[in-house]
């Protein structure tokens, strides 16, 4: 199974940010905001996390790296997807430097860490018969065509 994000998905993720869900190995879920999201590769998204956000997420991720996320704000309706993958908390290095610099410049976020999520699963969450449809089993061009048949809107850049 391969996840290849479409251009439209990239736009929604980066413009709106995401709600990140992590869970302990005993199944206790926690949510933090990934206010600055940056698509690093066709299957990788990085989030700049401030110190308070790291405090909630990092200890959970240290025991269980699974991350599920959905797009924040209007993206909860318009970008009807769930993304899942394996997260890695970065506190230094090239990815940390790149993402934290852009997060500071664009949103004023002082990143204490960057959560890089390597995506392995992609689901449609549109209510109805397609709810829960797994899209990462489709070829990338099929996913792109599938999405274009349904939606073409991309969000305006947030101030």
């Amino acid at each position: 199974m391969t996840v290849v994000l479409t251009e439209r998905m990239n736009a929604w993720i980066e413009t709106m940010g995401c709600h990140l869900c992590v869970a302990t190995l005993q199944g206790e879920p926690f949510v933090v905001l990934g206010r600055h999201a940056q698509v690093m590769a066709e299957d990788t998204v990085a989030f700049a996390l401030a110190e308070d956000e790291v405090k909630v997420a990092a200890s959970v991720l240290s025991e269980n790296p699974w991350v599920a996320f959905g797009v924040s704000r209007q993206g909860g309706i318009r970008a009807a997807y769930q993304f899942k993958g394996i997260g890695e908390v970065l506190r230094s290095g090239d990815v940390f430097d790149t993402v934290s610099a852009r997060a500071k410049e664009e949103k004023g976020i002082d990143a204490a860490a960057v959560l890089s999520v390597h995506l392995t699963e992609l689901y449609c969450t549109k209510p109805g018969y397609e709810a829960g449809l797994r899209l990462d089993g489709m070829a990338p061009e099929e996913v792109d065509a599938w999405e274009r048949q349904r939606w073409k809107d991309v969000p305006r850049k947030r101030a």
Partner: peptide
């Protein structure tokens, strides 16, 4: 509000879905 309902399997695989 639109809300996200977040759940987890018993062994810790998270899931997030929007609810109206």
């Amino acid at each position: 509000s639109l809300v996200y309902l977040c759940t987890s399997s018993r062994d810790g695989k998270p899931n997030i879905a929007a609810m109206r």
